[in-house]
């Protein structure tokens, strides 16, 4: 008798707990779905509106795509209605700057991190502490002096001025140094020395390949950062042939009211974010992993 009643109570307890969990799950998923819809709505509108004509855009909003996608695309590429829009040169400049910057950042940060990690030269301690300290300095502190020098030397409007500074990237250095500490035993370097390799060759042939995972992560992050960078390029670049995409978008914004074809504006936004979005969607797993490992700096 007692056994039976007890098991009924247990069953009830069990069932209640189950119901509670199900309710909690429903709430959680609803919350997640709402947030997802919120995030994606912007991109949905962006994609939908890039398929509409100027007239459609200025009349009634609809959630359905229209048929002017290619018209807008061709328009944005070849017959832009804004004097500032030149997708080809914007892409070219952005790509040159972002690609070279990220390669330089990764290579020289690794080289510097390796230099500090693997060798014991005089003053190493001070240098390591120094790099950590300068990591904290906000980048725009340099902007006034940088612009002054660039104006004086007449090197504004040149892409290399945006590229070369990326050789000194303290945050990437820090990440690489952490990675080396965790993965590269010094014996490996010694083995390479014994095998007859010189130091530079050891770095290129042994150390860099071992750092591939870290390089991949930092390559993506520095590429995205450079691709999206607006502040310094905005100050340094005035020549229409040298503008990168973010500057172009800024100019388009001040030009946007009224006279520019609306469909083209949507198309330009879409085109400028597309490369990064595609890369992101392919590599999102490792990028998200990289966020946490990179963020524990300081």
């Amino acid at each position: 008798m007692t056994n039976v009643s007890k098991s009924v109570v247990d069953n009830n307890k069990n069932r209640n707990a189950k119901i509670k969990l199900i309710i909690e799950r429903i709430i959680s998923y609803s919350f997640l779905i709402v947030l997802t819809v919120f995030c994606l709505s912007f991109f949905y509108v962006l994609v939908i509106n890039s398929t509409k004509s100027n007239d459609e855009l200025n009349s009634v909003f609809s959630l359905l795509p229209s048929k002017y996608f290619f018209e807008n695309l061709i328009g944005a590429l070849f017959h832009p209605t804004s004097q500032y829009v030149n997708i080809f040169s914007g892409f070219k400049n952005s790509l040159i700057v972002a690609l070279l910057s990220s390669v330089l950042t990764c290579y020289f940060s690794s080289l510097t991190a390796y230099g500090v990690y693997a060798y014991n030269f005089k003053g190493k301690r001070i240098i390591a502490a120094f790099i950590l300290a300068i990591m904290m300095i906000p980048s725009q502190l340099a902007s006034v002096g940088f612009l002054k020098i660039a104006v004086d030397l007449r090197i504004t409007d040149q892409l290399w001025v945006l590229i070369v500074p990326s050789i000194a990237a303290p945050a990437t250095y820090f990440y690489m140094h952490q990675y080396l500490k965790a993965t590269l035993p010094l014996e490996l370097i010694e083995a390479s020395r014994m095998d007859g390799s010189n130091e530079f060759m050891t770095f290129n042939r042994i150390v860099l390949p071992i750092m591939k995972p870290a390089l991949a992560v930092q390559m993506i992050f520095s590429f995205v950062a450079s691709w999206n960078n607006y502040y310094m390029p905005g100050l340094l670049i005035e020549d229409d042939n040298k503008t990168t995409l973010p500057i172009m978008l800024g100019l388009l914004r001040s030009d946007a009211i009224g006279k520019v074809d609306n469909g083209q504006i949507w198309m330009v936004i879409l085109l400028s974010i597309l490369p990064v979005v595609i890369v992101y969607l392919i590599l999102s797993r490792s990028i998200i992993k990289g966020v946490t490992s990179g963020s524990v700096k300081g």
Binding site: P185, E187, E190, A191, S192, M194, D195, I206, P209, I210
Partner: peptide, 10 residues
Amino acid sequence: AMVFQSYALY
């Protein structure tokens, strides 16, 4: 040539 304790294989 040297054989290391940890082998130091690449």
